[in-house]
Amino acid sequence: MDRISLSLGSGGKLMREFLRTLILRHLGNPCLDGLADSAHLEIRGRVGFTTDSFVIQPIFFPGGDIGRLAVAGTVNDLVVSGIKPLYLSLSLILEEGFPVSDLKKVLSSVREAAAEAGVMVVTGDTKVVRRGEADGLYINTAGVGQVVAEPGGIEGGDVIILTGSVGDHSVAVMVARREFEFEGEMESDCRPLHGLLPLWQMGVKWMRDITRGGLATILCECAEGGDVPVFVEEARVPLSAPVRAISEILGLDPLYLASEGKAVVIAPRDRAEGIVDFLRSLPAGKSSAVIGRIGGHERKGEVVLKSISGGLRLLEPLTGELLPRIC
């Protein structure tokens, strides 16, 4: 079989062969191998549960693909909620005609990312839709894990830490789409953030991964959710050279660009140094930095940004879509 065919969906012999030769060969484990309808799992204490769907184009981009993204996205949602990720589900929606070789690559990425994050894919599903009814491949993952911390309790004086440079995922995907004819090496930062779990034992109160909407949107959610004033300094936000350059050229604000392997962390001021040192020892945290604090102004629920040139302005959540300027 070179390409996914519609007859796969009828659930017969072809599907069993598909599961054995493709899914189990890549993702097999004691829990999945029996091909039962549900997985029986061992989890102690309170359980955390999340789900996310992935529809990215292109499916392969520098630094990752939809498979890696589907594992990282769900693992990260758990980690930032104080949950140690344990098990994932994996649902594939395939468009008729999708190359099997591409699916193999995606499944290998799922396996690698899951191994990296220490999680097992324990259940799943595959559906095939007619040509034109989907865009190649969509993936849904759900994840469960053990609750290790209850986030909350942000208060004045706490510091805001960014685990690394922002915008790398957005820019890598833009370059991969060849929307702007930029050439160069730009990799997505797409990665599972299980390495941040120890932070919950280091005094961290609140954590969010930065995805669509970018850093600005997360900071606004933090201010609104905690009904606290948030103050950040643009000059302290780490940016990679390509993100800075492409944002300049296109007139995009990097504070609104997506990342897929970075988080905002809030902790008491006296823990900040230890946390930044720890983050900088991680492969994804080399450029980690304190970028602001809770307080610094009177406007509860709002984010004030001090720009590089010294202006103070309110930071708004992302509205509409990002459009490059035309002149």
């Binding site: 040139s309 010294g310 202006g311 302005r313 309110l314 509205t319 300027r325 002149c327």
Partner: peptide, 29 residues
Amino acid sequence: PEQPMGPCMVSVEGSCLIHYKYGDTMWTG
């Protein structure tokens, strides 16, 4: 910007959009 009535509230170079987004911004450096 969500419900613009004229082009100056649409364009990233439009003065209405700019005033709407950055009207309160003050240099304090």
